[in-house]
Design a protein around this nucleic acid. Structure first.
Length: 564
RNA sequence: CGGGGCGUGGCGCAGCCUGGCUAGCGCGCUUGGUUCGGGACCAAGAGGCCGCGAGUUCGAAUCUCGCCGCCCCGACCA
């Protein structure tokens, strides 16, 4: 492409709305423009990069037997009512004129097609995928393209006759995803994840380490343990039992509200202080006991409780149910509450907790003896430095960007949509489904986050919109123009994608700055300086290293540099 | 949804507190000329319902109220 005829609006200054590097550079390099919050227009250069990523996705999905679909973005609302997903908060955008919604994902449509046409176990397995625009009612779009209301997803769906089959498809996807991200040149890692409200039995996320990430993950420095903080566990031991076991006893604790205040008041560590957190689950009041200042992890809580909305109880409700305010609540003498406890409290005794009477606590609580517990669950949030559950080394906790997520969905959607097949014994069975997503824009943005400098983007050769950026230093010098044109033709004829800065209106310095900003892997610089010796300069964007090559040897030189 | 910030030619900003004459600067854009290897120079130009609406006032970019939009932090995140 000749830059003089190409629409690549570069920006010298940083747009004030952009905060993170990928967002700034995607705007400055003319890859995209924002239309409204969370919605971006991709300009030719940005779209070209996305097509590169999409090509990799296609190849790797096809390689595991995936078949590409093009599915409707407009869905009847009724389809989503069937799967009970119509009214999930912040999920679906709808249109005003019809009972249609904009699809945020496509389990429903896939299930609908499967219900219609998958009849026998002989029709299974299937892997169906699509690379399309999806919509989400995102409450707060942010970080450029990393979190939008409209985005392009590669989503695939596996259909199987058995859970074993699902495991196979799931593994095939996990492997394909590793290849995809490796080929894209991303430095990524895989974490165990929450399947959240998607339902299902297993889930992993593909993550890129980044301060700008919106997910938080715990990782072990020593071994391969890594998990989203929503599900991460640590090897922290339970607090166990103490020898003396006296009867429970209430005692006054004036003006003590928090665990820290209680610890100070009693001049003790917080180990044997049991914190009470009060929630409602499907309208049942729920008391959750945690060790000391351990932080309740709501994702774990939801997962432990299963179906039904979970929310913190409000102060008024609490007072009327218990007669006390938050900070004075405990398991002893509490009526009408379901009580669960964190695993670290398993069978513990000698505990101190609220007395359900303001300014009073109870000591010597023995969970075995004194409390009717509805079970122990892992409910606490892991903190940095805690021992890895696998090897014991300290865990680190850091932000990350989710670039892919794979789910074992099971039969939740097939049952809701009546997508069944007849098994070998003629029994009707729900199809066992999996779902696997990759954010296309995030591949691009993450690559830029990981590969840029103060001058601009540094594309790798896989995602780069063009492999080579020719700079004709001056368009007023006849020989420069001649050789630059010859070089452009020769590289193009060799099948190399070339962007040729043939603009006569800007100076050489301007072109160099633009070339660094756009960041193609190789810059081929044609100018009088080199041509005096019949030579052309090749600059590697990544290292800045410059090589002089004979004018007629450029194609070979470029080829060999690109094949490194 | 809570908290904070911002909205002024295409982009980045000043002016607003303390109301006043023709709304200013840098970049970009147009025309002409000179330049031509790290975002050139000179000259002449074009381009603004100062986010929208109401109000206060002789007079509003500036003060008041309402609304809209965008960004950041939080909540949320299938």
């Amino acid at each position: 492409m000749r830059l003089s005829k190409t629409f690549i609006p570069t920006l010298k200054e940083i747009p004030s709305d952009a905060v993170i590097p990928s967002h700034q550079l995607m705007l400055r390099a003319g890859l995209m423009r924002q239309l409204t919050a969370g919605v971006y227009a991709y300009l030719p250069l940005g779209y070209k990069a996305m097509l590169k990523a999409i090509q990799i996705l296609r190849e790797e999905m096809d390689a595991i037997g995936g078949q590409e679909f093009h599915l409707p973005a407009l869905n009847p609302e009724s389809l989503w009512i069937k799967t009970k997903r119509r009214h999930i908060p912040n999920l679906i955008l709808s249109i005003k004129e019809r009972d249609l919604v904009l699809a945020p994902t496509h389990e429903e449509v896939v299930g609908w097609i499967a219900a219609m046409h998958i009849q026998s176990y002989k029709d299974l397995p299937q892997i169906w995928y699509q690379i399309q625009t999806k919509f989400r009612n995102e409450p707060r779009p942010r970080s450029g393209v990393l979190r939008g209301r409209q985005f392009i997803m590669k989503d695939s769906y596996s259909l199987d006759a058995s859970w074993e089959g699902l495991d196979e498809r799931y593994e095939a996807h996990a492997e394909a995803y590793r290849r995809i991200f490796r080929r894209s040149g991303l430095d990524f890692f895989v974490v165990g994840a929450s399947s959240g409200a998607m339902g299902g039995s297993g889930s992993q996320e593909f993550m890129v380490d980044s301060e700008s990430g919106e997910d938080t993950v715990a990782r072990c420095k020593q071994c391969s343990y890594a998990a989203n903080l929503e599900v991460a566990t640590s090897g922290l031991a339970g607090i166990g039992r103490v020898p003396e076991n006296n009867p429970v006893k209430e005692f006054p604790t004036p003006n003590v509200r928090t665990i820290d205040e209680l610890a100070t008041f009693l001049k003790t560590t917080d180990e044997r202080l049991a914190k009470s957190v009060v929630y409602r689950h499907a309208d049942t009041p729920l008391l959750i006991l945690l060790v000391g200042n351990d932080q309740l992890n709501e994702s774990k809580l939801s997962a432990a409780l299963g179906e039904g909305a979970v929310r913190p109880i409000d102060a008024g409700e609490l007072k009327s149910l218990t007669g006390a305010d938050g900070g004075s609540i405990g398991p002893i003498g509490l009526k009408g509450f379901r009580i669960i406890a964190d695993k670290r409290l398993e069978n513990a005794n000698g505990l101190i907790s609220g007395a359900n009477r303001n300014d009073h606590h109870v000591r010597n609580i023995d969970l075995q003896r004194d409390v009717h517990l509805d079970g122990y669950h892992d409910l606490r949030t892991v903190l940095p430095g805690e021992p890895c559950p696998t090897c014991g080394a300290p865990l680190i906790v850091a932000n990350a960007i989710e670039i892919g997520h794979i789910f074992k969905l099971g039969t939740k959607y097939s049952e809701a949509l009546n997508a069944t097949f007849l098994d070998e014994s003629g029994q009707s069975q729900p199809i066992v489904m999996g779902s696997y997503g990759i954010g296309v824009e995030r591949i691009i943005a993450c690559h830029i986050e990981q590969s840029h400098d103060e001058h601009g983007i540094i594309w790798n050769k896989v995602l780069a919109p063009f492999a080579v950026h020719i700079v004709a230093a001056s368009m007023n010098n006849k020989e420069t123009v001649l050789v630059a044109n010859q070089t452009y033709r020769a590289l193009s004829d060799a099948g190399i994608e070339v962007l040729f800065d043939d603009r006569a209106s800007v100076t050489a310095g301007f072109k160099f700055k633009d070339a660094d900003l756009l960041g193609m892997p190789l810059q081929v610089i044609v100018g009088e300086r080199g041509l005096k010796e019949k030579k052309i300069e090749i600059k590697r964007r990544a290292t800045g290293e410059r090589t002089m090559v004979p004018a007629d040897g450029v194609v070979n030189a470029v080829r060999s540099m690109l094949s490194e």
